[in-house]
Design a protein around this nucleic acid. Structure first.
Lengths: 396, 396
DNA sequence: GTTTGGTTTGTAAAGTTTCCAAACTAACAA
DNA sequence: TTGTTAGTTTGGAAACTTTACAAACCAAAC
């Protein structure tokens, strides 16, 4: 669907200028009216008028005065954004837990809660959880700008329908519509990995960057793409399916692993379950029934188990190759690694760094997630700010 | 560098509306003023006024009238874009040949020339070639909107500097600046593969699509990315370096091929020279000195040479894996394959299709380039139209 | 210490560009 | 003639800009 270009109306023009001014303030605060005018090439008069309106709304405040310039002259009045003039609520619905967050315009968390996901999560029970959380949050309702929701599956952003979230048993769920009816607030729904990428971009390892790739390694391997400062979603909401990469050309002929149907090739080689399974297979005697997870294998390696080391090494080669592939295709400024397995980054990162250095013609920074488990919920908040129309837009 | 957001002025507002109207006309022509007004939600008054101006400039023409609607009433006056009201010149500078093209707003070629690249291509000789071509083109100079140039190397679009084009011996060449001085026209410089992608998107296999990946397979393997209808360039003008993908996780430990230093891993496995070399190595007796190129190997396979078949098969596995990787990361609507090796598509395509079908969770269309060797030059023209400000913008 | 001159900030008034709504004319069928 | 649709004219509203000015401030001259 083609994004409808907006017709230019005076009102739209005003909005553009408000946004521009607001962005400028956020980036350079504290800043005077005159300086804003110079930076934006909007006339001083207009800047003043728009600022007046924004001060009336409470978004912008006068905060002290600067010193006179070199030659003398009237001291400028400094302006700043009142970070507490608006709040966003973000939630990250995961297969095992749900994270709720409320934060202000600068990303300061004022309220947070983590609950374990109910076995079968119906809409009504979800809504009650949200209501309870919002009731307890120390934020007046009228200051709440909107709600962002990250869901583990394929989501259609433009109408907020969760097309498929196996771990929750959701299919074609019109989450945005239902939630907006219930809470009477704008709601934005997006894939959880994308949310994490937005979160890291706003407040974490990708702050200030416009080309960021976030890779989460856990049961599955996913990837959120921020290109030119915007989330890239692909033509069918299925971009970043890094777990389906083929990191071994031999697979073209030979791969046929029934255990991992539904998963991608790389996930079947480098994901958590794959590592656990490979290890058990290495032991020869047992089959997949002996339950074990990747974390155990990492621990075994730390204790000197060489089989564990070999298995992890093998898996990590796939991951490293995958990261190289992402890097050379996107040319990002930063690659952020997160997800459960990255808690053992000490064992994985060195090889990854070495591989990227060797195979990629350009070298991005490679960092570990800074926000950890909160990235998704914070990203959900970031998305609200990003999408919300004036006067909060462009905060990122 | 952050793209400066424009301040909203009345003039800018007008431009936006002109663009919107022009887009609407192009998509639905012939179309009446009233219908434009309804589609764009710009008032009839404004539509009329802007149309008047555009007719004065010659961009839009009245072309006949429609039939009266059901109930009777005045017949609408149909409007269309005059495709010959402007022309663009595109050139594709390759290592072995240079293609010149002049075409009108709808992409109809009115003049074309192909010359072989001089051994050492200096700016002055290039300019003379262009001048001669333009002089012979049946287009009045004042109708020429701009010049697009595709160069084989890394180009910095925003200031039009060719950072490095080894096959031409260019380094840090300020091509845009020099050319604009000389020809007194807007000039846009871009990587040749990106240009080809733009070309196919405008007039070829990607027409009307907004998410397109174009892969060219030749000596090197490159890739142009059209995401959300725009060229994606990466953070350091190095996106789409698909030739550097690692399509074999074993390489992480073992790859060390001095012959291909400077090339990427995948290029060293699936590029033209790689195929030729692998074949010769298969013969055991000869070494790399016996010159041969990929095309010969393809011909040998067609004649029943099994070694040739095996070598190509092996190379193609890497290519197929690479294509899967691109598909799952970008979720494009179409993947377009082009470049020298794709002239033997009959031998390569079946395996590629099968591999993508098997490994990718989503299925894009996979097509062969429609414009062939002209894609680059036409894309250079497309870029001019895309970048040129009102009233031609948004033609794509 | 006070005055004077130059500089900078912010506001007010008048002017410009652009858009839109409503009334109007034109064209056409029944 | 009547009703309907297409396009234009007119008057006005919304937004920006330019110009002019008051307030605030430094610094050097007196």
């Amino acid at each position: 669907m083609r994004k409808q270009s907006v017709s230019g109306t005076p009102r739209e023009m005003k909005r553009m200028n408000q946004r521009l001014i607001l962005q400028t303030i956020r980036r350079k605060q504290p800043i005077s009216r005159t300086e804003i005018s110079e930076m934006t090439s909007i006339s001083r008069t207009t800047v003043s008028q728009l600022i007046d309106e924004m001060m009336e709304e409470g978004v912008v405040r006068e905060t002290g005065r600067g010193s006179s310039p070199t030659q003398g002259g009237r001291k400028p009045v400094f302006l700043s954004i009142d970070d507490d003039s608006g709040f966003v609520c973000g939630l990250d619905i995961g297969g095992s837990s749900i994270t709720f967050v409320v934060c202000n315009l600068s990303g300061k968390v004022v309220s947070k809660e983590v609950v374990s996901t109910p076995v079968s999560l119906g809409l009504e029970s979800l809504f009650r959880l949200i209501e309870r959380f919002l009731d307890n949050a120390p934020v007046p309702v009228e200051r709440l700008i909107g709600l962002g929701v990250g869901a583990p599956g394929i989501t259609r952003f433009h109408d907020g329908v969760v097309l498929s979230a196996p771990s929750l048993g959701w299919t074609d769920l019109p989450l945005k519509e239902e939630m907006e009816d219930r809470f009477n607030l704008p709601v934005y729904v997006e894939n959880d990995v994308n949310m994490a990428a937005l979160g890291e971009c706003w407040l974490g390892a990708g702050k200030g960057k416009r080309h960021v790739v976030m890779i989460t390694v856990g049961t599955g391997i996913g990837c959120g793409l921020i290109l030119n400062g915007d989330l890239y979603r692909g033509s069918r909401w299925a971009s970043g399916e890094i777990g389906f990469m083929v990191t071994d050309s031999h697979a073209v002929e030979h791969w046929d692993d029934p255990v991992f149907s539904g998963f991608g090739y790389m996930e079947s080689k480098a994901g958590g379950p794959a590592i656990a399974r490979q290890y058990l297979r290495g032991l020869k005697d047992t089959d997949g029934t002996l339950v074990s997870n990747a974390k155990d294998i990492f621990d075994l390696w730390r204790k000197g188990d060489e089989t564990a080391g070999a298995v992890i090494w093998e898996a990590n080669k796939h991951l490293a190759a995958g990261i190289v592939n992402v890097v050379v295709l996107f040319d990002p400024e930063v690659v952020i690694l997160g997800g459960g397995l990255m808690k053992s980054q000490d064992l994985l990162l060195p090889q990854i760094l070495k591989t990227v250095k060797r195979f990629a013609p350009i070298q991005p920074e490679i960092r570990i997630s800074q926000l950890g488990d909160d990235a998704g919920a914070l990203g959900a908040g970031a998305l609200v700010l990003k999408e919300h129309d004036c006067p909060y837009q462009g905060v990122l």
